[in-house]
Every structure is written in C-alpha cells, then in structure tokens.
Amino acid sequence: MKEGLFMESSQLVAIISRLDAMTENENDEVQTRHFEKNGKEMGIVSFDPTTKTFTLEEVSDKQKFEFDNIDLVAIEVYDLLNE
C-alpha cells in the first residue's frame, strides 16, 4: 500500500460482526441490536436463538422482516443505513 493511502473499514463487515455476536450468545434469550445513522435510529435487529431467525424492524415505518440467513439481514441493514 502506498504511503498516505488508507483503507476505509468496511461497514458491511462491522454489521456482520455485530449480528454474529448475537448468534454466539450461550443463553436462549432474544438478542437485540440497534443500528443508527448520524445519531438517528434506523433499524432494530433481533435474533431468536430458539428459531435461529433474525427480525429487522425499520424504525421509520415499523415494517418487520424475518431472515434465516445472516448475510441477507446484513445486506438489508447496510441498505437501510445507506438510503
């Protein structure tokens, strides 16, 4: 890498790390993470370890979407934060 250039940290990797931490919790409680943009809450993701599903609630319109795949929910959160 040339001096003076830097690589910006991937927003998608950060989102996946937060979601992945939810799946690694040892108890059976639903885990929740809040995603914000410029201090404004954009979405809330919950993970239910008993069903192994994620639920994304878009705060602006209260719509909820269910996912059984971490990649798909990460992409949706990324899109939500970059609207």
Rank of each mutant, 00 (worst) to 15 (best):
E76T: 01
Q11M: 12
V13H: 09
N69T: 12
T51H: 04
I75R: 15
L81V: 09
F67V: 00
D20W: 03
A21C: 05
D79A: 09
D68Y: 11
E8C: 06
V77A: 02
T55S: 08
D20V: 01
M42H: 02
L56H: 06
S10D: 12
T32W: 04
F35Q: 01
E29Q: 13
N25A: 13
E83R: 06
F67A: 01
K2I: 14
E24W: 01
H34L: 07
F47S: 02
E76K: 12
E26D: 09
N25P: 01
P49H: 06
I16E: 14
S46W: 01
D68E: 14
F65P: 01
H34M: 00
D48C: 12
E3Q: 13
F6N: 13
I15L: 00
I44R: 09
F54Y: 15
D61P: 04
M42N: 00
K2N: 12
L56K: 05
F35I: 02
D71K: 09
E24Y: 04
M42W: 05
M7N: 14
E8I: 15
F35P: 02
K37S: 13
E29F: 14
A74W: 01
Y78I: 03
V13M: 09
I16Q: 11
M7F: 11
I16F: 03
H34A: 06
L12Y: 07
N27T: 11
F35H: 04
S60M: 04
V45Y: 01
F35E: 04
I16P: 04
V59P: 07
I44V: 15
L80K: 09
I16C: 03
D28P: 06
F54S: 05
D61R: 10
T32G: 00
R33W: 02
D20T: 03
